[in-house]
């Protein structure tokens, strides 16, 4: 029931083999650029999509598949729905007294497109970069070593602890029986207390596991800092490869701000 950790799809495409540091930086830059796109710069969105599709092709993924996967954040659009009626300005009247604000619709569609594009970019990163490489990239990009280590530990132990939580849930399900003619389930408070107890149980086991992990680390010479191998310098080719999508992004955004609004 817990999700598997690997969105990563192993492969040998150019994007798979690209320097992970470059990929992380470009991902953030692209998402930032997408966010900066002025709402009404409509030609920018298909232009940005061609960039995404291009990167998908570089990863040997189908652009349509990425488009589908990018829809994962769409339910959140519910939060932006009120824009359709609350933004002041000219409106289109539909029948039955409903008027849709033009500015509101524009804003709504812009958010939809931005979100959809951003998710695809993020997915391209996680699908072409193994978790180990991602962690390495973060560390090389000067994310504080402690945080990087915490992320690595968390992912390492999430499967294990996730399985324990799964078994706790099964054990509870196994004893969640119904007797003839009686309402089952106990009170809400009781159920919450049981769930709380399960969480407490899981906490103690996790805490004690962390002590064993610590002891194992001490036994192997750990003294407080996670040592890392020095990352190799960024090659010119990698930097150049990363510059291309950034250039494309820059051109699109410039055009968006100067001409397309």
């Amino acid at each position: 029931m817990y999700r598997s950790f690997e969105r990563y799809q192993p492969g040998q495409s150019p994007l798979h083999r690209a320097d992970p540091r470059v990929k992380v930086v470009v991902t953030f830059a692209l998402i930032g650029g997408i966010a900066l796109t002025p709402t009404h710069a409509w030609p920018a969105y298909p232009a940005l999509w061609t960039l995404v599709a291009g990167l998908a092709a570089l990863a040997r993924f189908s652009a349509w598949r990425m488009a589908r996967l990018g829809a994962v954040a769409l339910p959140f659009m519910l939060a932006a729905l009120p824009l359709l009626i609350t933004v002041p300005g000219p409106a289109w009247t539909l029948g039955g007294g409903i008027a849709i604000s033009q500015a509101g619709l524009a804003r709504f569609v812009a958010i939809l497109l931005k979100s959809w594009l951003s998710v695809q970019v993020a997915l391209l990163l996680t699908m072409t970069t193994s978790f180990a490489d991602l962690v390495w990239a973060l560390g090389s990009l000067r994310v504080p070593g402690t945080l990087v280590a915490l992320i690595a530990f968390m992912v390492r132990y999430s499967t294990t602890l996730g399985e324990e939580a799964e078994r706790l849930l099964r054990a509870r399900a196994a004893r969640s029986a119904h007797a003839e003619g009686r309402p089952a389930g106990g009170t809400l408070f009781w159920r919450a207390r049981v769930a709380g107890g399960m969480v407490g149980n899981l906490f103690l086991r996790s805490y004690e596991r962390s002590e064993r992990v610590y002891a194992a680390m001490l036994a192997r010479g750990y003294a407080g800092e996670m040592r890392r191998l020095t990352p190799p310098p960024l090659s010119w080719r990698a930097a150049l490869a990363g510059a291309v999508p950034l250039l494309w992004l820059g051109i699109v955004e410039l055009a968006a701000m100067l001409w397309w609004q």
Binding site: L150, L161, G162, L169, S206, Y207, M217
Partner: peptide, 16 residues
């Protein structure tokens, strides 16, 4: 090790 494993704990606990 303490915080890393407990981060995993929070993640797992959110399933309960």
């Amino acid at each position: 090790p303490l915080m890393g494993v407990l981060a995993a704990f929070v993640f797992a606990a959110q399933m309960i």
